[in-house]
């Protein structure tokens, strides 16, 4: 780890906060009335994903955490762990389900994902804003919802069920926001 001061802060940088790796989501300078300069930050915990505010004294030293981003192929899941492989050296890496989070519903075997690694352990994952996924089974329309257009529930290739507009058919490819699990658009038809 390298010691830096607040003057070296950059958006996206990883630092140690309360003994845990955090990413600087946002930072700005503030001067309280008749007070010294301070740096107000929004820090995202790599472990829990929780974002919190913290105000540093200007010039305060913090530990920067060296984080490496690896492109890895998702292989399989056992228990609470997801296994990924580095295609360069075929080494495998276990990623805890807490790090994968909601994304577990949309992760596909054989696809490449970005894993954030600190001291040989996975501390985070970068998720795409959109995932393209195939509809494998389609049910009937849900009754009653006429205000915003009728909706129905379909099953996608990862086995998860999601709500989509009526016109979606089995075999279509749709785009989903992996963070919220919300249907975005149809991107391919059978």
């Amino acid at each position: 780890m390298a010691k830096i001061t607040t003057s070296q802060f950059e958006k996206g940088m990883f630092i140690e906060f309360k003994d845990e790796p955090h990413q600087i989501v946002e930072f700005q300078h503030v001067n309280p009335g008749k007070g010294s300069a301070f740096i107000r930050t929004k820090l995202k915990s790599l472990k829990s994903g929780k974002v919190q505010e913290f105000t540093y004294k200007s010039g305060e030293s913090v530990e920067e955490i060296p984080i490496n981003v690896f492109e890895m192929q998702y292989l399989y899941k056992t228990g609470d762990e997801f296994f990924f492989m580095d295609k360069g050296n075929f080494e495998q890496l276990a990623v805890d389900k807490n790090i994968v989070g909601n994304f577990a519903n949309f992760i596909k075997e054989g696809e490449i994902y970005q894993i954030l690694i600190h001291e040989d352990a996975a501390v985070g994952m970068r998720f795409p804003k959109k995932v393209r996924i195939k509809v494998t089974a389609s049910d009937e329309a849900v009754k009653g919802n006429t205000v915003s257009g009728a909706k129905k529930v379909v099953t996608i290739e990862t086995g998860v069920q999601i709500t989509v507009p009526l016109f979606i058919k089995k075999g279509d490819t749709i785009a989903i926001d992996p963070e919220t699990g919300v249907y975005l658009e149809r991107v391919g038809q059978t």
């Binding site: 503030v30 309280p32 010294s36 301070f38 105000t55 004294k57 030293s61």
Partner: peptide, 16 residues
């Protein structure tokens, strides 16, 4: 840190 004044230490607690 050694260089910090009473005001800086106080204000950091106050601001947070």
């Amino acid at each position: 840190e050694k260089k910090n004044s009473w005001e800086e230490i106080f204000n950091q607690i106050f601001l947070n």
